[in-house]
Design a protein around this nucleic acid. Structure first.
Lengths: 391, 391
DNA sequence: AGCCATTTGTTCGTCGTCGCCACTAACCTA
DNA sequence: TAGGTTAGTGGCGACGACGAACAAATGGCT
């Protein structure tokens, strides 16, 4: 959009082809042409360029049973990938994720105690160095880091990650010094929303709200007009701290009566008998317990959720609300109940046609989101040689 | 973004030149080149095209005192314009507004009683027909209508305009049948925000929240990433109905404890002695009254405003908050007070660097916004001959 | 007054990119 | 095996931006 020359057209067309492959999966050149609206010869030239760049592989024509000359297959390269790093209170996950959103390598390291920023940087760097060893055959374009907290996106400064107890931690800078790769740090919920947009519950939806309930709190992100809404510095989407009650219960950052303070996984777990539960166990335990205390607790949490979501629906007029983590379980327990609570708190037209659904992507959600954030510059400008000259 | 051909480049460049003139005012060809980053010869060609299309006028070179050959002046055509229509409870305003955001003609008609949709359409059509008489010399490209209510933007269906008492009124369709011009209907606050973005308090700011307090209620709109956030159907921005208290006072659509129910112009006016007051009178009366009851009322309204704005700041991370109407007066009464109230309800990083300012545009705000909405298709594709062939 | 540096207008040739067309290749159907 | 259909291939033309060379118009300096 900046300049205005014919090379920009080329770049746009290259990304169009790449994006089509990423969201639509591998396909034939002919399909690619139909999907992108480009001419046969243009597509041929584009694909050829991408093949030279090592981003796609052209395969032999394959007969698919229909009439006509078979078209060449085009597949995303399996070697182009990015690192995904996801630090949590109790563990660090590092992975290599390809352009095709497949997780190729994955290492999880448990922590005995809350890690410092430097713990994470050192350990992740070591793991990445081991993973990206020369014979691995991957062409790594960058590092995407998903952080549970507020992140200033320009430089990857972690402003506040309450559970990790990091404040103003220069994570982006530290990674940049440790590894000679472009680093992209972002909020975990935002990256999750991006992954859901491309591969999950947000496919084809240009306006949706994503809300994830984890053990540690509630994170949110907004997709508006097909793009992640970042705001001025990248802090947008913080729905967890919306005030929903007059109570003095505080959340992780000290705000009383906020959504995160009132809607907690912990309360549900305790009611169900306590103990350690993974998400699936929690959901099945919850769904099979229709006792009065549980019903009441869910209804109460639905009420609070509806207050926060109601505001967001009024303000953003989304097409869909995607709930992840234990919020998805809360939804599954009584979908009509949550919907009714929400309808009572929204303008009728804005709520019309809004569907409330569960997130579709599982454990790899954040890894895909983080890696794809790191792959984004490559996708946006495939011909720029600033990335891997690993050959 | 759709196709990917060289004609798209031309279109984008034409738009870039036109936009530069609209936001930067008339300027020389050389400045235009610097601003848009295009080559000398390219700019010459673009301007020439636009001149042929009748969108700009090329003027003789003017010496500006600097060394070097003087550059031709380029001025937006004063004849290209659009109709702006603004129905209110007590009046209808119709205007002709040019590409340069100047209001060229303006007619206001008072109503004795609340007008029906058909009243508005008939009267506005008559006025427009009179204004756009052949000898007027204007080249009208369309009609922009600013409606105080929820509007489905695709077809201009007014879902709910509480003060006008319109429900599901097919305003867009009615205008389209009455006048053979493209019609664009939208929410008034959204159009106001667009005008503030281009010519007022939002210049150069890509993420801001606009909140306007009128006699009838509170309307809002969001500019995110430089563009109006419309949402799935165009209802986005409805901040007036955010719940901010547990009271049972209801707003115009019947939601209890909402911002619009608690923060009212009426309460302030009553405290100041009542009577009819125009915005300026209200502001000066308010600012000169530092009595306890007024202080208390303002502080209370600030508190509620802070709750609603706090959520929005957390969720959208804007760079600026723009307050219009009596909300601007409320701000002027005690800027630090409002800021402090807001800071208490937001995440510190998200609130950092946010400035709270008054709207800059006055009475013509909505007319400019509405007309520019109607001019948008022309600006986005200046060469498409689908508009006026009035010559 | 005359000369130079500076800036811009103007013209023309070049280059990159896409679409179209004609032809060929590879498949299905009958 | 012939005809229809679909896609790959390569050449050509169109379009648009850029850069270079030259001309024009100004201010500054001697």
């Amino acid at each position: 959009m900046r300049k205005g020359t014919s090379e920009d057209v080329r770049r746009e067309n290259l990304t169009a082809v790449l994006r089509a492959l990423m969201v639509g999966g591998n396909m034939s050149r002919a399909e690619l042409g139909r999907l992108t609206g480009r001419n046969r010869s243009t597509v041929a030239s584009l694909v050829s360029d991408l093949a030279v760049l090592g981003l796609v592989d052209e395969q032999d024509p394959v007969t698919d049973g229909t009439v006509g000359r078979p078209s060449h297959g085009v597949a995303l390269s399996t070697s182009v990938a990015a690192f995904a790093v996801h630090p949590e209170v109790d563990a660090l996950t590092v992975a290599i994720v390809g352009l095709d959103a497949q997780v190729r390598r994955k290492v999880r390291h448990e922590f005995k105690q809350i890690p410092s920023m430097m713990d994470v940087v050192m350990l992740a760097s070591t793991i990445m160095a081991a993973m990206g060893a020369d014979d691995s055959g991957f062409r790594i374009t960058g590092i995407g880091v998903a952080v549970p907290g507020l992140v200033r996106t320009v430089d990857g400064l972690v402003r506040n990650a309450p559970h990790l107890e990091w404040r103003d931690a220069p994570l982006g800078q530290a990674f940049a010094e440790a590894m000679s790769l472009p680093v992209h740090v972002a909020n975990d919920a935002q990256l999750g929303a991006l992954a859901e947009r491309d591969y999950g519950a947000g496919r084809g939806v240009s306006d949706f709200v994503y809300l994830n309930g984890g053990a540690s709190g509630i994170g949110g992100a907004i997709i508006a007009g097909g793009a992640l809404l970042g705001g001025a510095h990248g802090y947008a989407g913080e729905l967890g701290h919306t005030p929903v009650s007059g109570s003095d219960r505080v959340d992780t950052v000290g705000i009383p009566g906020s959504l995160e303070a009132e809607v907690t996984r912990e309360e549900i777990v305790t009611l169900l008998g306590g103990g350690h539960m993974d998400p699936e166990a929690l959901e099945s335990a919850l769904l099979s317990d229709r006792s009065d205390p549980v019903r009441a607790a869910v209804a109460r949490q639905h009420g609070y959720l509806a207050i926060a979501l109601g505001t967001v629906v009024n303000v953003l007029n989304p097409e869909r609300v995607v709930l992840g983590g234990f919020l998805a379980s809360l939804l599954a327990y009584d979908p009509q109940g949550l919907r009714a609570a929400l309808e009572a708190r929204t303008l009728a037209p804005a709520m019309e046609g809004v569907d409330i659904v569960s997130a579709q992507l599982g454990a790899n959600l954040l890894l895909i989101g983080a890696a794809h954030r790191a792959l984004e510059p490559l996708v946006d400008d495939p011909a720029s040689r600033s990335w891997g000259s690993t050959d």
